[in-house]
Nucleic acid binder design. Structure first.
Lengths: 253, 253
DNA sequence: TCAAAAGTGTTTTGGTTACACCCATGC
DNA sequence: GCATGGGTGTAACCAAAACACTTTTGA
């Protein structure tokens, strides 16, 4: 993965610029052709897959670091991105801790210690994202949630936790703005919800409920071209959407 | 706060045993006499108040560290304790970073760097907790949520975030087991909910709802001694309570 | 005997679920 | 013209909200 020389340079550079022992890993969700996708990276020359991740600059806020990582991997900016959990099992990074054991002494090796990683998840526009590998990856690609490669370290757990969080989120926050194109039809939006939840929803009730939130604008044009009756196009009412993000959509008690 | 000698020893010891740049802060909630309480510490000889906190041993899981801190400050163990957010603003620990600037050189000073802190919150039994100060505090005490001293650093924000999380939690998880005594009356439990939520609830609807969860056992004895009609005593049905913790109490969609 | 607290049941209502019919389009 | 997908309305149902009366107890 690294030659000795490359590793030395990387470690020296990292020690200088980044917070020790801390990483950020991002679960980046996209939606395309009725499927929920996750962005994953493949290491050069190995059959090893990871979530996009990175480190935190010494004077950088955590959210800024996560945004930087997201932007580096997708070209996208200013989108829904949220911290959801810290993963800190003492053994979680053991494979990495030992990876370069024989190449350079541990006190010079940036990877020789236990790492904590802060999990972020993001919802992004599949079409406008431009998956870009990082320096030690040969590939950055969307993978279907049902067709994921085995992920290294605890990245499988991180992904699962992100998905659970997203499903919970559905109950009290609007989602979709960053996952859907500017204009979309109600059945398309429904498909997104069904995919995230992994279950079918009633067409009519879904529509009523969504419209009830008041976060959608109906455009008075149908989607042309498809077979069958042309569905209306909608867009999000950004102002109300933002309000709903803050206020929550419903709220027990 | 520290003499030079004490500080040196502390730093050497800390560097040896703990993860750098990481702390844990705990928002420990208790409930007593109809008031929600939070455990806070007062620094020796200063009017400076903090949340209970500590560091993570090099090979210690995060949850274990949080439990250890909780046990050190309260004597309590195995209670509800949950990570809820990481606070990582680059300036959040600045006052501490600079505190000993002139006492020992920064490379020896454990506090000279930016710290990330992982926020945990706990719900504990007020009566059985035994507040115990740590080595640089002169006092560890319950303070009423409405009568809090100003907290140092971002501990005010940490507390507020914990409280928001707790209020959200009420909607989909049972709480109370760790906050209430073994036996309690329905009005007492209701008072807990009202206090956390900061609003009055209807007596009858509250009772119906609580009983509907199936997590309470009515003991066929009333609470004696008080004026007026004697209320029934209840206890939690621990098995069902645990199930409800896992399953959730209700759940949109 | 009366005020204050606690137990219980009923009505109302609003939201969710379930379901049926009509409309538009391409083949 | 018919199969398919999309739009809309309504009845049934359930859970939450609102609300009133009775019981117990100490002062």
């Amino acid at each position: 993965m690294f030659t000795k020389q490359e590793l030395k340079e990387f470690c020296d550079n990292a020690r200088l610029n980044y917070l020790d022992h801390i990483s950020i890993d991002c679960v980046i969700f996209g939606f395309h052709e009725g499927q929920l996708k996750v962005l994953v990276l493949k290491v050069k020359g190995e059959d090893a897959w990871y979530l996009p991740g990175g480190f935190v600059l010494k004077k950088e806020p955590l959210d800024t670091a996560a945004n930087r990582i997201l932007k580096d991997r997708t070209g996208l900016d200013k989108i829904f991105l949220q911290q959801f959990h810290v993963f800190g099992d003492p053994d979680r990074s053991r494979p990495h801790n030992e990876m370069y054991r024989d190449l350079i002494p541990p006190e010079e090796n940036w990877f020789s210690h236990r790492f904590l990683t802060i999990g972020y998840y993001a919802l992004v526009d599949f079409v406008h994202a431009n998956p870009t590998p990082d320096s030690h990856s040969e590939m950055c690609a969307w993978r279907d949630l049902n067709d994921l490669p085995k992920l290294e370290l605890d990245h499988g757990l991180i992904l699962k936790t992100a998905l659970d969080t997203l499903r919970l989120q559905l109950n009290y926050q609007p989602i979709g703005y960053n996952l859907m194109p500017k204009e979309f039809t109600m059945p398309e939006l429904q498909k997104l919800y069904e995919t995230i939840l992994g279950q079918k929803l009633d067409r009519r009730n879904f529509q009523r409920r969504m419209l009830g939130f008041g976060i959608l604008n109906r455009l008075d044009r149908p989607r042309k071209g498809g077979a069958h009756k042309a569905p209306y196009l909608y867009s999000f009412d950004l102002k109300n959407y933002q309000d709903a993000l803050k206020e929550g959509l419903k709220g027990g008690w």
